[in-house]
């Protein structure tokens, strides 16, 4: 019986793949570093979005 936790995307070639992070916390830390590093840029994009939405209220076309 196979449940979701043992499902493989290529069952017959399972040996060609391996876990990249043996320790789950390493993977979590990788993501945290990635998200921390892009946060300033995402803040700028959020400001650009606010500015665009404000401008859209005044931008009249006909």
């Amino acid at each position: 019986m196979t449940d979701d936790t043992t499902l493989e995307l290529i069952p017959d070639q399972d040996q060609v793949s391996h876990k990249t992070f043996e320790d789950q916390s390493e993977y979590d830390a990788f993501w945290q570093r990635l998200l921390d590093s892009i946060e300033p840029t995402l803040e700028k994009l959020a400001e650009a979005r606010r500015q665009s939405e404000e401008a859209a209220k005044r931008h009249h076309v006909r």
Partner: peptide, 8 residues
């Protein structure tokens, strides 16, 4: 399911 990265 829980985060798990596989490498081929």
């Amino acid at each position: 399911r829980a985060r798990s990265l596989r490498d081929f």
